[in-house]
Write a protein that binds this DNA or RNA. Structure first.
Length: 595
DNA sequence: TTAGGGTTAG
């Protein structure tokens, strides 16, 4: 049980402070009790009037537990306790790490108003607070103050704090510039920059920066570098690089902490190597809720729903309670396994069984689950009755289901809801365009397309990544920029002939635009995953596994072609789309054609 | 007497 907040009140105008317990403060924590006792002793002895002594006490209070922060604040309003910059910094620091970081900024205002000079310790805390507040204006204003006070360029902590703030909240380019200009580079400033690239989704660049750090010669990666870079590999699905980093950790005798093991399990699962993930997981002794959630999520991603359920039971036998993320992973497992009833049961009883309130993510999973199973009315009803405010992502889940089940009527309703929240939503406009195309209403289609063009609304392009010899190659739809594109297109030709030999042409059902069949064929044959698989076929030895990571959902046509290629070329093809893994082998996919 | 960097899902 959390202790309640103790307060100090002055007893009258004679300025003899006393400690008063609040009614609610029945059981302070042992640490808080000790601090209060110390405070009382200092008051009795008069030593509280020494600013250095008072500072130690205030620092202890402000950084012991967030619930003690109001107690620390009473020293600011107290007229008898002398304060110095150290005391103010301690309180600012406490709030910067609390759930009310805005109070760091207001305390800083009071500090300035009281004439206390901030120093080089003050600004890292304030920059941290502005990052937690997600407010770049405050951070930029602090940056200006730092320059005005001549503190930039002198202190490595301020420099790294600025790099970190800019990298996460402003722009990673500015952060990189500050990094280049900084007088002092150490592992922390490198980590801030690498993390900035990961935070802005530039995972390849993050790994490049890690290499650059190694080339610089004087800095060695630490646990935090590894956590960040392993996470970048997981996003990219870069298995070779991930394996290399795992061996780098061993070679450099870095300690495989539980956090690092969890990150590696996640990386192997996200890179398609679920067996390696399982081995690491089983070898691990100290598993926390994150470790279990990562493993359960990995199994879900690979469609191993039963194993995911078994693990949830097992974790509870080890007295680890599932959290919100675990339940999300479990609902994903139900979704990919088509386990509608189990999913509904977990969702409806999560509050009762685990004391976890459903969040919008849980609603997203259950809507996807019901929608995929064709229970569109039920999914819509759930959204309408939900305790959370539906966002574009939640409506988007239902729209995807409407598209799968070709329910244009509900699709239209959903699109309206999406456009109310985000008038420039690309997916909603494309849906409308395709819907009108389906009915041959080309004049309206043209209107929608023109609107999209005028407003510069574009769907993110389909992108597929494939890693060959540790180098990640990215292909976009219809991409001809790859240096080996002529070999790739020759292979695509070969694929299309093989597919035709089986009595089929390239399937064309997935595109409804006002274009002729041949154009459709070209369009589909150049989907990014097909370019990537063709490149994989010409760049790897016969029989080896081809792994592809796609940013969107794999379309039905590409799915069919992948099955054919796996059979004709005798290859295992592993595709991770934005939803799950597909393992193609011998003409069959592990998803059982349900995704 | 204080300080900068971190992993999971969606």
């Amino acid at each position: 049980m959390r202790s309640s907040i103790p307060t100090i009140r002055t007893a009258g105008a004679n300025c003899t402070p006393t400690i008063l317990s609040q009614k609610s403060c029945l059981r302070p924590s042992p640490a808080t009790k000790l601090l209060k006792q110390t405070h009382a002793k200092l008051l009795r002895s008069g030593k509280i009037h020494d600013a250095v002594v008072a500072g130690k006490l205030i620092s202890g209070i402000a950084n012991s537990h967030p619930s003690n922060l109001p107690y620390a604040l009473t020293f600011i309003s107290h007229p008898c306790t002398p304060l110095n910059t150290f005391s103010w910094n301690s309180i600012i620091r406490g709030f910067a790490h609390s759930s009310s970081p805005e109070k760091s900024i207001s305390v800083y205002g009071q500090m300035l108003a009281g004439g206390f000079p901030p120093n080089n310790y003050t600004y890292p805390f304030l920059l941290k607070a502005s990052t937690h507040l997600n407010d770049c204006r405050i951070g930029l204003s602090l940056h200006a103050t730092i320059i005005r006070r001549g503190l930039d360029g002198l202190d490595p902590y301020i420099q790294t704090s600025l790099i970190s703030f800019h990298a996460v909240l402003v722009s990673v380019e500015t952060a990189h510039q500050l990094f280049d200009e900084s007088s002092h580079r150490d592992i922390t400033s490198w980590n801030s920059l690498i993390k900035g690239y990961v935070a802005s989704g530039r995972h390849i660049k993050a790994i490049q920066m890690f290499h650059e750090m190694q080339d610089s010669g004087n800095v060695r990666g630490d646990e935090i570098t590894m956590l960040t870079v392993v996470s970048a590999c997981a996003h990219l699905g870069a298995l070779e690089m991930g394996r290399w980093i795992h061996s780098y950790i061993d070679r450099n005798n870095l300690i495989l902490t539980p956090n690092l093991r969890t990150a590696l399990i996640n990386m192997y699962a996200k890179c398609g190597e679920i067996e390696s993930a399982k081995t690491l997981f089983r070898e691990m002794e100290e598993k926390d809720v994150r470790t279990w959630s990562v493993m359960i999520g990995g199994l879900a991603l690979h469609g191993h729903a039963k194993e995911a359920f078994d693990l949830v039971e097992e974790m509870q036998r080890f007295e680890v309670l599932p959290d919100s993320v675990t339940i999300t992973a479990l609902l994903c497992a139900c979704n990919h396994g088509g386990m509608v009833e189990q999913g509904r049961r977990i969702f409806s009883k999560m509050k009762e069984d685990y004391n976890i309130e459903p969040t919008i993510e849980h609603y997203g999973c259950i809507v996807a689950l019901l929608g995929r199973a064709g229970r569109l009315e039920e999914a819509m009803d759930l959204i309408i009755r939900s305790s959370v405010k539906p966002d574009v992502v939640l409506w988007g889940s239902l729209l995807a289901a409407c598209m799968v089940h070709k329910n244009t009527k509900m699709g239209e309703i959903v699109v309206k809801e999406i456009l109310k929240l985000d008038p420039e939503n690309a997916g909603a406009h494309v849906f409308l365009s395709n819907l009108y195309a389906e009915f041959g209403k080309w004049d309206i289609v043209q209107k929608v397309r023109n609107f999209m063009k005028e407003q510069r609304i574009r769907k993110p392009p389909g992108s597929s990544l494939i890693e060959i010899n540790g180098v990640v190659h990215e292909f976009l739809s219809g991409d001809s920029s790859h240096p080996q594109f002529s070999r790739i297109y020759m292979m695509l030709d070969e694929i299309s002939k093989l597919v035709s030999l089986k009595g089929q042409s390239f399937p064309t059902g997935g595109v409804s635009f006002d274009i002729n069949e041949e154009d459709k064929e070209v369009c589909l044959s150049q989907h990014s995953e097909k370019l990537a698989v063709a490149f994989g076929l010409v760049s790897t030895s016969p029989g080896s596994v081809i792994r592809i990571i796609k940013n969107l959902r794999i379309c039905r046509d590409c799915h069919t072609v992948m099955k054919m290629i796996s059979e004709k070329f005798g290859r295992v093809i592993v595709v991770r789309d934005c939803n799950r893994f597909h393992h193609f082998s011998g003409g069959v996919c592990s998803c059982g054609d349900y995704w």
